[in-house]
């Protein structure tokens, strides 16, 4: 076939350009189609969004203040049980605070904890991982052995020790949990960087003269994000769980903060007399963590190229 030679543009250009690269669905649609295949993930996402809304509009949704004490209604059972009233839908605790309101406000703390912990852990972990992956040599070895040491401790124990050193408070608990979770990000990022580095696009950025910082943050990092996002979703739930555990042990949020773990700890002694004061905070933690984990699985299906089918 003779294509018009010596024209201004190179031949074949029009034909090549006309077909191809058209009508392909966008990235988000593709992502959604993978994600929505996993029913559990969608359910998780819906619950997670519901929790976010509850946390955001806690002041409007909660019928009472989370710390207001109703002295006339101590340990009142939920509405459907004998002795319950519609004023306190899920009953009250030992000093007459409305359980539902406390749970709704507790959602705020959970998300606060989750977001702060993930931001600290992922931010520092990704940075350290990038450094390790790019530096190689002794810097790499040093960083990775340090992370190995951190990972060798049972995570909750390590967090406990750190809170014991820093002093019990919600902020310190979050810092401790972030430090415990951060090695996972370091390892993940380093592995992803090592996988990307030998690829030709990195080499061509080098040939073009990209500086090391540019290579790290502009060239390589965006291509390592998929597994990190999945890890972030999963460690969100770990953070909530660990914070609740620390709260339960009295080393996290301090009473009267309506944090779910702390609520559990406060009502430990009433397990036999008033089941609801323990059950509802426990359920809230369970459902929240489960929803996030389901969602994380869906994210992995959709973002992890190794699980993708062509």
């Amino acid at each position: 076939m003779t294509v018009s030679d010596n024209s201004q543009a190179v031949p074949n250009s029009t034909a090549e350009a006309q077909s191809g690269a058209m009508a392909r669905p966008g990235r988000f649609r593709e992502f959604w189609s993978y994600f929505s295949e996993n029913t559990g993930a969608v359910v998780g996402l819906v619950i997670f969004l519901a929790f976010i809304l509850i946390a955001a509009f806690a002041d409007v949704l909660a019928p009472h203040s989370p710390t207001e004490q109703f002295r006339q209604a101590l340990l009142q059972p939920p509405v459907w049980q004998e002795g319950g009233t519609s004023e306190f839908l899920l009953g009250t605790d030992a000093i007459g605070r409305d359980l539902l309101s406390r749970l709704i406000h507790g959602a705020r703390y959970s998300f606060f904890i989750g977001i702060i912990v993930v931001v600290i852990a992922a931010g520092s972990g990704v940075f350290i991982g990038l450094v390790a992956g790019f530096a190689r040599g002794w810097v790499d070895t040093l960083i990775m052995r340090l992370m190995d040491i951190l990972l060798a401790f049972p995570s909750l124990l390590l967090a406990l020790v750190m809170v014991a050193i820093l002093g019990p408070s919600l902020i310190n608990a979050m810092i401790a949990i972030a430090i415990v979770l951060q090695p996972h990000y370091v390892r993940l990022t380093r592995a992803a960087v090592l996988q990307e580095l030998p690829k030709d696009y990195v080499t061509s950025a080098r040939v073009v003269g990209a500086s090391r910082l540019r290579l790290m943050f502009v060239t390589v990092l965006p291509n390592c994000l998929a597994p990190i996002i999945v890890q972030a979703a999963l460690s969100f739930s770990t953070a909530i769980l660990d914070a609740a555990a620390l709260g339960f042990l009295g080393l996290g949020a301090q009473p009267p903060t309506p944090e779910w773990g702390t609520m559990l700890a406060d009502s430990r002694e009433f397990v036999l007399r008033a089941w609801w004061v323990v059950t509802f905070p426990g359920l809230a933690i369970l459902i929240n963590v489960l929803a996030i984990n389901l969602m994380g699985d869906g994210l992995r299906d959709a973002l992890d190229p190794k699980l993708k089918r062509s």
């Binding site: 690829k199 030709d200 696009y201 080499t203 061509s204 950025a205 040939v207 073009v208 003269g209 060239t219 965006p222 291509n223």
Partner: peptide
């Protein structure tokens, strides 16, 4: 180095690996 970079460039074999997928 900067001078040389401007005068020598390379095209790789695999067009799927040589372009940054996020740019």
């Amino acid at each position: 180095q900067a001078d040389l970079r401007a005068s020598v460039q390379i095209v790789f074999q695999d067009p799927f690996g040589s372009l940054n997928p996020r740019q």
